[in-house]
Simulated scan of single mutants.
Amino acid sequence: MNKVGVLVLVSGLLLGGCASQQTTAERAQQYEDPKDPLESFNRTMWDFNYDVLDEYILRPTAVAYVDYMPQIARTGLLNMADNLEEPSNGLNNLLQGKLDGTFISLGRFLLNSTVGLLGLIDVASEIGLNREEEEFGEVLGKWGLNTGPYLMVPALGPSDPRSLVGDVVDSSYSPIDGLNFYLGFLRVGIKALESRASLIQQEQQLNSSADPYAFVKSAYFQNLEFKVTDGKVEKSEEEEALEDDIDAFLDEF
């Protein structure tokens, strides 16, 4: 599983809580989302992920990891985990016709795996070879495949059929996952802990929202679109017309 993969996974565990006073059934009846035909089931899994898995397992583990693991060790472990994903980044860049990204990812993997002591030190970034992260789910999106229905997967969090297939394919690229299950599991665990730790500061904001479930679902699909379009999200005609009017107004001053 890659970096969206893990970050989205952890976000689902964090945000699965029921912040409003309404019951799951009452909230589910408020609106119908064509992207979320399984909303009743998804909201139940949302509550389970947050109230049980995150509260008793993931969050305490992430807090302990941050408190007791030296920062230099955390950085090294995360660098190693990221380095093991470079082969999948390279292939996914290639499948999208991004040759520059392909060579950068492969160069990063070779350089960090050797000079960087198996990825412990991110030497490549120090010389300007910044990470070109791509997922197979993004490749499928580029090829025109829709996400399918929104899914709140038990223990995994927000997802969709396209992303799930992408995660499976990305995992098959990893040289460690194919050779040693335990090292592959460690890689995913490190990414999950770091991602969960990075979300601690956002807990209050998320828990205070009227409907965290709907908020995160919207953010999830926006994030997928952002990745597939490489940040070039298409605007509606109304939005473009409004921006033109604003620009014309400002030009008068």
Rank of each mutant, 00 (worst) to 15 (best):
residue 7 L to G: 14
residue 9 L to P: 07
residue 10 V to A: 15
residue 10 V to Y: 04
residue 10 V to F: 05
residue 12 G to D: 10
residue 12 G to E: 10
residue 12 G to A: 08
residue 13 L to C: 08
residue 14 L to I: 06
residue 15 L to A: 15
residue 15 L to K: 12
residue 15 L to H: 09
residue 16 G to T: 00
residue 17 G to Q: 02
residue 17 G to K: 03
residue 17 G to Y: 01
residue 17 G to W: 00
residue 18 C to S: 12
residue 18 C to T: 11
residue 19 A to I: 02
residue 20 S to L: 01
residue 20 S to C: 15
residue 21 Q to V: 06
residue 21 Q to H: 10
residue 22 Q to Y: 08
residue 23 T to W: 01
residue 23 T to V: 04
residue 26 E to G: 08
residue 26 E to S: 14
residue 26 E to L: 13
residue 26 E to I: 08
residue 26 E to Y: 06
residue 27 R to I: 02
residue 28 A to R: 11
residue 28 A to L: 05
residue 29 Q to Y: 03
residue 31 Y to P: 03
residue 32 E to H: 13
residue 33 D to I: 05
residue 33 D to A: 07
residue 34 P to S: 05
residue 35 K to E: 14
residue 36 D to W: 02
residue 37 P to F: 02
residue 37 P to Y: 00
residue 37 P to S: 03
residue 38 L to H: 05
residue 38 L to N: 03
residue 39 E to P: 01
residue 39 E to Q: 12
residue 40 S to P: 00
residue 40 S to V: 07
residue 42 N to M: 01
residue 44 T to G: 09
residue 46 W to C: 15
residue 47 D to T: 07
residue 50 Y to G: 15
residue 51 D to T: 10
residue 52 V to S: 04
residue 52 V to Y: 08
residue 54 D to G: 07
residue 54 D to K: 12
residue 54 D to Y: 15
residue 54 D to I: 01
residue 54 D to Q: 14
residue 55 E to F: 02
residue 55 E to Q: 07
residue 56 Y to A: 09
residue 57 I to H: 06
residue 57 I to N: 06
residue 58 L to D: 04
residue 59 R to K: 15
residue 59 R to M: 09
residue 59 R to N: 08
residue 59 R to F: 03
residue 60 P to S: 09
residue 61 T to Q: 10
residue 62 A to Q: 12
residue 62 A to W: 07
residue 62 A to I: 09
residue 63 V to Q: 13
residue 65 Y to Q: 12
residue 65 Y to E: 13
residue 67 D to T: 07
residue 67 D to C: 03
residue 67 D to Y: 03
residue 67 D to E: 12
residue 68 Y to N: 15
residue 69 M to G: 06
residue 69 M to K: 05
residue 70 P to S: 05
residue 70 P to D: 04
residue 70 P to C: 06
residue 71 Q to I: 13
residue 71 Q to W: 13
residue 71 Q to H: 13
residue 72 I to K: 15
residue 72 I to E: 15
residue 73 A to T: 14
residue 74 R to F: 04
residue 74 R to N: 08
residue 75 T to P: 03
residue 76 G to T: 10
residue 78 L to V: 11
residue 81 A to V: 10
residue 82 D to V: 04
residue 82 D to G: 01
residue 83 N to D: 14
residue 83 N to E: 12
residue 83 N to Y: 07
residue 84 L to R: 05
residue 86 E to F: 08
residue 86 E to P: 00
residue 87 P to C: 01
residue 87 P to L: 00
residue 87 P to E: 00
residue 87 P to K: 01
residue 87 P to N: 01
residue 88 S to L: 00
residue 88 S to I: 00
residue 89 N to F: 14
residue 90 G to F: 09
residue 91 L to H: 03
residue 91 L to W: 04
residue 91 L to R: 04
residue 92 N to T: 11
residue 93 N to G: 08
residue 94 L to W: 04
residue 94 L to I: 01
residue 95 L to W: 01
residue 95 L to N: 01
residue 96 Q to M: 12
residue 96 Q to K: 12
residue 98 K to E: 14
residue 98 K to W: 04
residue 99 L to P: 07
residue 100 D to S: 12
residue 100 D to K: 13
residue 101 G to F: 06
residue 102 T to E: 02
residue 102 T to M: 11
